[in-house]
Design a protein around this nucleic acid. Structure first.
Lengths: 162, 162, 162, 162
DNA sequence: TTTT
DNA sequence: TTTT
């Protein structure tokens, strides 16, 4: 009964960090800058930069770790999530992050060495093959199969029944 | 390298139609009204209604066919698609549709008999069980498995490594 | 060169708080819950609620203060913003908020006494008339004029030139 | 009580066409391609391109006419609208268009001579100054004023009252 | 054809 | 703190 959706287009502040949970699940984190220009009261153009903490899991994490780098312009779709943690003094702290479920590289053609292309996330079986994961328990990754294609733009074997 | 995303909140003009392709793939179609209020030049409040052709496939089609009905308010996320077809005279015609990949029932609380709830689409394994499909070739439906869960809000077995 | 957009559909946890800055600008704040259902590893249905801090300014603030209340289901469109503040001990803290620029009441039909209707935000001149602001400097509110209408769905005085 | 929102990232198929209505209102039209990669049943990578008819009005039209050109990658936010017209034979035809209300140039830094920058649409007073409109009735364009600034990321004169 |  |  609810929607929690974030859409960002911005640039990476640093290269992503790719880590693995104890059970071998890939997690990529990076910060993404979005900048807003606005006129202040005196009519001056001002710019304000917002930094977003992005988190990607599993296959999307590995794609981020492999293809993204500092300065790259990307599109991110995901959801907002606030996580509680304890600081050094044991006090509760909260951090708000964007959990990505789609990522697209933008800014095209030979832009800084990115081979780029495609959109990544969810079902997307367009993802690069070959498992970059280190030895790890893993398990959650399911095997792609022949039937595993995406929502078809059209279905050559089927007559559209309307 | 591109994004094609539509977000609609509106009401169904009629009950959905649920059909099946020759190979047994479910397709639901319905029209969704969004209404916009605006002031015209004379300062009068006006309303303009836009009708959207919604198409849903597979499991989402079946959920739409089962739970949606005329008047229901829903959230739809999907993409724009223009399809070519021939009219009775053999002329090329084009129709623009929204191919849904997420649907949420809104307007809650026992609203008109909908048992409703949850959000449907993509990976969503929250979908009602039991196959409503008629005898049909099918095949594209893959078996859900234990590893088949969604992006975890958090992962109890894993320490978050950051 | 960037996009920072949030779309939420959720329910208010409490009535909004409407305040005014020293110079008389209205600010409404409230928290909005979005809930996600997911299957955990053991196949159990779980629910996780996310709480979003919403901030609305000016006319939209006043509409929120006037029409929204605890439990109401709304659509919010806005942007993510992280604000720094000092806690009681003088330590820097950060809070992430959604600065709303559009709000729509959902869930319809005489739902809990809301007179409701319309969509509010930006140019929207559909907003209730009559100034609810207390005596205050103000100033930023500009006067609506005859030319002040919104993007017209169509323009009766103009032939569309294509 | 409804939402009609489209978000596109794609490339212009041609230079925009900038026209004016009899009363002098600027209208820009252009087509925008979004491409989707997907795997077909035989496992082959396929690409399908969708062409969107974009319409922009007034100031946004002039910015599009001035800064956009064939091939440029942009972000568009707007709404879906289906318009009825008569073909040469007097038959009713329908065309679906995206009425833009925000546009952002993407793909950055000196990309093909675009001076670029900023986001355009709505209140955005960041728009280039100087009126490119030919002699024309006009009228709907309101004069920007000192009070005409956008939603402030923060307000230096005001203490945030929460 | 919906809804407010 | 909401809602289903």
């Amino acid at each position: 009964m609810s929607i929690n959706k974030v859409i960002l287009v911005g640039n990476l502040g640093k290269d992503p960090e790719l880590r693995y949970t104890p059970s071998g699940v890939a997690v990529a984190t990076f910060s993404l800058a979005t900048s807003e220009r606005y006129k202040d009261k005196s009519g001056e153009q001002q710019e304000k930069t917002e930094w977003h903490n992005i988190v990607a899991w599993r296959q999307l994490a590995e794609i981020c770790g492999k293809y993204l780098h500092k300065g790259k312009q990307i599109y991110i779709e995901g959801k907002i999530q606030t996580r509680k943690y304890q600081d050094r003094d044991g006090n509760d702290r909260y951090i708000t992050e964007i959990v990505a479920d789609q990522m697209q590289m933008l800014g095209g053609r030979g832009d800084e060495g990115s081979s780029g292309g495609g959109g990544y996330g969810r079902q997307s079986s367009a993802a690069p093959r070959g498992d970059q994961r280190p030895a790890a328990g893993g398990g959650q990754k399911r095997e792609p199969s022949r039937d595993d294609f995406e929502e078809p733009p059209f279905n050559p074997d089927d007559d559209i029944p309307f």
